[in-house]
């Protein structure tokens, strides 16, 4: 039995098996169960019947309410992603290019938000836009208004909350790919007669695309799958597809519908991930950790 060297080495598989087993048991199999449950029939609160029927699916496909939710979710995800890219690119560029001695401080500050509670960061915007928030306080101090203006609980505050939480992902991903670019390339383009803007547009920007794309994918998928931020910062009409899932499972206890909606969300966002991995590969995503 001298199997260890010549044939397949079992040791890596031994080391991997606990993780792979956990993922199979806690992620892969549950996904299959979501699909199975989507064909079940809901009888009453938290009561469902084993069945194979397309009632839930046809409701999701035909009811305009769900289509509106899908549309809203895609729209909001695109807005958040584009704004995060616009807001994030320049800081990433600045950190990557600066000769500033304390560059590490900028990087540390970039990672810091990851250590700060998501819910605290989200609710902190109530202190800015709320009735007792900083803006209303300022307006009243300046005598611009008597009664507090209602600036909160609308789509704008939801967007601000999302960008605030996801921006570090974007900046970090762009920074990583900018940092990997040979720093002689832009000067080389300049010597060949390019203006600074041309050098940036023709050399640096295309080379930083993988990081920008990875950042966009992360922000898009994370926004598209959320439901907590709209609950904290949004009004009644600012719901995402995730909120429908939350309502179906937590409030209405309609498990088959919750399963159907979850699988729909998985398909929609999965499509985006597959599209991305076809174009870019998934390797870029892990680079931000190094």
């Amino acid at each position: 039995m001298s199997s260890s060297d010549q044939s397949i080495d079992k040791r890596p598989w031994l080391l991997l098996s606990p993780s792979l087993m956990a993922i199979t048991l806690l992620v892969v199999i549950p996904m299959a169960f979501i699909l199975v449950y989507s064909f079940y029939e809901n009888i009453d609160l938290a009561v469902d019947k084993v069945a194979f029927q397309f009632g839930n699916w046809s409701e999701v496909m035909t009811d305009g309410y769900y289509r509106t939710a899908i549309w809203k979710t895609l729209r909001l995800s695109v807005i958040v992603t584009v704004l995060a890219a616009v807001l994030g690119y320049i800081p990433a560029y600045f950190i990557a290019m600066t000769k500033f001695r304390d560059k590490w401080l900028l990087l540390l500050l970039l990672i810091l938000p990851f250590w700060i509670s998501f819910i605290i960061r989200t609710l902190s915007w109530i202190h800015i836009f709320g009735n007792q928030g900083a803006l209303n306080g300022l307006f009243q101090l300046l005598g611009l208004t008597d009664a507090p203006l209602s600036l909160m609980y609308n789509e704008f505050t939801v967007i601000v909350g999302f960008i605030h939480v996801f921006l570090p992902y974007m900046i970090l991903n762009i920074y990583v790919s900018l940092e990997g670019i040979d720093e002689n390339l832009e000067p080389a383009a300049r010597t060949l007669g390019a203006t600074p803007w041309q050098a940036f547009r023709e050399v640096t920007l295309p080379l930083s695309m993988p990081g920008l794309a990875a950042g966009c994918l992360l922000v898009f998928v994370l926004t598209g799958g959320s439901y907590v931020t709209p609950l904290i910062l949004g009004g009644p009409s600012d719901f995402l597809f995730g909120n429908l899932i939350y309502d179906a499972i937590v409030t209405e206890l309609n498990w088959p519908m919750g399963a159907t909606l979850s699988f729909t969300l998985l398909l929609l966002l999965g499509l985006v991930v597959v599209l991305y991995s076809r174009l870019m590969g998934l390797n870029q995503l892990s680079k931000a950790f190094k």
Partner: peptide
């Protein structure tokens, strides 16, 4: 890459 909401519902089901 699996939306956390979906992950949560899957495991719960």
């Amino acid at each position: 890459l699996v939306p956390e909401t979906v992950l949560a519902v899957g495991l719960l089901i």
